[in-house]
């Protein structure tokens, strides 16, 4: 799924990165070690952890995008880190629950 589509689904704005990036699924967690343990390569990360360590984790597990929920403010150094690591940052007013639900439905149509 292209990020532009995922952004539309979640009402997210693209803070940094390309809207043409593709994601193949998602993982939702605010525990970075949990993300390390369970997120798959290609997953979008759905979280409220708006700091640069989240970028490091995303880069290490091969997550191409991070959705920051609840409109949490994103610090400048996180944006810079994401740009440097070529990871897209998106910001949505939705909670992790809602954002994940919308993405999950799109990936698993029933």
């Amino acid at each position: 799924m292209e990020l532009s589509h995922a952004a539309t689904l979640t009402g997210a704005i693209l803070v940094v990165g390309s809207a043409e990036k593709k994601i193949s699924g998602g993982y939702t967690s605010d525990l970075l070690s949990d993300v390390m343990a369970h997120a798959k390569t290609g997953d979008a990360l759905v979280t409220i952890q708006a700091h640069k360590n989240t970028v490091a984790v995303a880069s290490l597990v091969g997550a191409p995008a991070i959705f920051i929920c609840n409109n949490r403010p994103i610090p400048e150094d996180m944006i810079e880190a994401a740009a440097a690591e070529d990871i897209a940052l998106l910001k949505t007013a939705l909670s992790q629950f809602e954002a994940s639900g919308r993405l999950w439905s799109a990936f698993s149509p029933s």
Binding site: L31, L32, S33, T47, N53
Partner: peptide, 14 residues
């Protein structure tokens, strides 16, 4: 910050 969940060392070992 999302750390300190007691998963680090077990993750590394796994």
């Amino acid at each position: 910050l999302g750390f300190g969940a007691g998963m680090g060392l077990p993750n590394a070992k796994r």
